[in-house]
């Protein structure tokens, strides 16, 4: 019986391979674009906040609050603002992508030991040089950790995009849920879970490989 169900599912996947592949590609697009947008906004903003700490607390607290807003609610807001299709989906996903990167960039940079920066100043480095040569390299592991969380979030929330006509693996899950079709559910759920787990694993390997030797063991 269980074996039979697996066979049916495999046959279904072969039958619908083009659909599944298209949804997978669209899912990667959703995640890729929103994480890229998140990085472009969050990394500079995080650096900026590390220079103006009195803003930082308020901004980070706000970011934390935004993060507690359920995904479905964000989707609703975006829908009211932008209507149906890709733009609202990308908007929501980018917001979810920004928050972890912002937090980790800020923490990463502010946790760089003062003595390094003093030393750098001592040998006559400019602020720009200190940022590029000391702070960013030392904070990189933390920033990459933030990117990893962002990727996991966006892979997850991108499944909701199917609800508002933006496609992706969520389309298959929605079709399955609205028609009580197990094969459709699995055809969307299994790949999205694999993508999330694989990307998360891959990025944490990258993160470990770039962690400065002296900081290994300090997890972020």
């Amino acid at each position: 019986m269980g074996g039979n169900a697996v066979m049916t599912f495999v046959a279904f996947c072969i039958d619908h391979q083009k659909d599944i592949f298209n949804c997978l590609v669209r899912h990667f697009q959703l995640v890729g674009i929103s994480v890229a947008a998140g990085m472009l906004i969050a990394i500079p903003l995080g650096i900026f906040l590390s220079r103006f700490k009195h803003f930082a607390l308020a901004v980070l607290r706000l970011a934390g609050m935004v993060q507690t807003i359920p995904g479905l609610v964000m989707l609703g807001f975006a829908l009211l603002l932008f209507g149906i299709g890709l733009p609202p989906a990308l908007f929501v996903l980018s917001i979810y992508a920004i928050l972890p990167i912002l937090q980790n960039t800020y923490t990463g940079i502010t946790e760089v030991e003062k003595s390094y920066i003093e030393a750098a100043k001592g040998i006559g480095m400019t602020n720009g040089q200190i940022l590029r040569k000391i702070e960013i390299p030392l904070a990189l592991s933390s920033i990459v950790g933030g990117i990893r969380t962002s990727v996991v979030f966006t892979v997850s929330w991108a499944t909701l995009a199917g609800l508002i006509g933006a496609g992706g693996l969520g389309d298959l899950i929605w079709t399955g849920l609205s028609t009580y079709n197990t094969n459709y559910i699995l055809a969307g759920a299994v790949p999205s879970a694999i993508v999330a787990i694989a990307l998360s694993g891959l990025i944490s390997i990258i993160q470990k490989s770039i962690t400065p030797r002296g900081l290994k063991g300090v997890s972020v």
């Binding site: 829908l79 209507g83 149906i84 299709g85 199917g162 609800l163 508002i164 006509g165 496609g167 389309d171 929605w174 079709t175 609205s178």
Partner: peptide, 14 residues
């Protein structure tokens, strides 16, 4: 295009 049943009207309206 596939979407939630109640959103079809917004989509065609837009």
């Amino acid at each position: 295009k596939k979407m939630d049943i109640s959103l079809k009207y917004q989509a065609i309206g837009n």
